[in-house]
Design a protein around this nucleic acid. Structure first.
Lengths: 219, 219
DNA sequence: TATATTTTGTACTGATCGGTACTATATGAA
DNA sequence: TTCATATAGTACCGATCAGTACAAAATATA
């Protein structure tokens, strides 16, 4: 391994320096902040509904700057998807780390309704609002969105398979089926949020779901 | 009341004759069949993704014929929504007619997964695929879609309120909350279907959900 | 200071969008 | 036949779409 210095912080600094441009007119905007604004626009308007004018206005840059920094609309959305992944997966993974499976799933759902009713971002989930169907426009990025939804479900499934090994699931409860069931409910909550349901209302739905979920786990 | 004849069939015939054109070149296409094709296109491509070219091609008519018969894209979609309502609500209502609340909800979910995995139509639900967000394009019809989703939830809620009156719900189970919970799960199944889940897989998720649901109802 | 390099901003491209003007055509009524 | 009415089909409209050509401006290097 190449020695970039004495600590990993040095290594990070070196990597950053390597990716930073050294010559030419410096970029007048923060690429990360612009990407976050793009995330917000795609979240709010959907992939098709977000025009280049919507994006550049929110990002505070002009059109050629967007293309120079991000490629095109499709590649910008792919980066947005990656950013959304970074923002959502850690909290899912953290919830699922709880030793008790019931608490893990409870935390998962409670964190979920916090996120989909966060007033600082659009209601619901980007992965559901953003690209609901596959058509000529969305075809290039449709599968990536579905894959990310399936990726979240896999996180739940893997945790449930641990529980199944440990004998924590009730009789005739398949972890794959239960993961799909929880994911369905979670995604449905996102639609409820878009419908206008409040956090308190979603909380009561989660509590009802959890009462039923207990039957599927061993005491 | 005006007497249109001896029977309600005569009345229907009279109404039909009144709405049928009597003068001018006759329409060369079946309006109902064209509307059904439009439903299919909106279902498959979404409201934004369905272009007038997509619509006219599938409907087998040219552009001025569409505008003469349906007004414009927005009004056509409103008629499509009404058609979808006619196709979906009766089966929901029929399922909920069962005397036993558990059976009613079971039928509801089983009919639901039959419909959202029907190979003759696009996967999932038009009300979720068709108009996921509100933007400049979808604003005129967005609320109508949300209202139809809420209308389906109301059907469930009203049935559950009957059960609550009859003491068929477990302690601390509010019918409004339970209706929202069931609707969320049902909508999530629609997304699972779009993800590629099979009917058999959704059936197993429904069965797990029903096992939990039993706890929320009195034996 | 001179040069190479990159970003910025304006102004544009062809393609497609939803919607329509206009003419030809097909009917019922006179 | 003749006329009034309504649809069919072609060919078009202005607006907007994603994407880009080009030149001015701002930096590092030499």
């Amino acid at each position: 391994m190449i020695n970039y210095g004495q600590s990993s912080l040095d290594w990070l600094a070196t990597m950053k320096a390597m990716t930073e441009q050294k010559v030419g007119r410096p970029r007048a905007f923060d690429r990360d902040q612009a990407l976050f604004q793009a995330l917000n626009v795609f979240w709010r308007l959907g992939y098709e509904g977000a025009s280049l004018s919507d994006l550049t206005e929110a990002m505070g840059i002009n059109r050629p700057s967007l293309y120079a920094a991000f490629g095109n609309k499709e590649q910008l959305f792919r980066e947005v998807l990656a950013r959304y992944h970074e923002l959502s997966v850690p909290s899912i993974a953290m919830a699922l780390e709880h030793a008790e499976i019931y608490v893990a799933l409870e935390q998962l759902l409670r964190i979920n309704i916090r996120q989909i009713t966060n007033p600082n971002v659009p209601a619901g989930c980007l992965l559901i609002r953003g690209v609901p169907v596959c058509n000529d426009t969305t075809a290039p990025i449709y599968q990536a969105v579905v894959d990310q939804r399936l990726g979240q479900e896999s996180l739940i499934r893997e945790r449930l398979e641990q529980s199944a090994q440990a004998g924590e699931l009730a009789a005739n409860v398949d972890p794959v089926d239960l993961a799909r069931t929880i994911m369905a409910f979670s995604n449905g909550l996102s639609i409820q949020s878009v419908n206008g349901a409040t956090h308190a209302e979603l909380e009561r739905s989660v509590e009802l779901f959890l009462r039923g979920l207990k039957v599927l786990l061993v005491a």
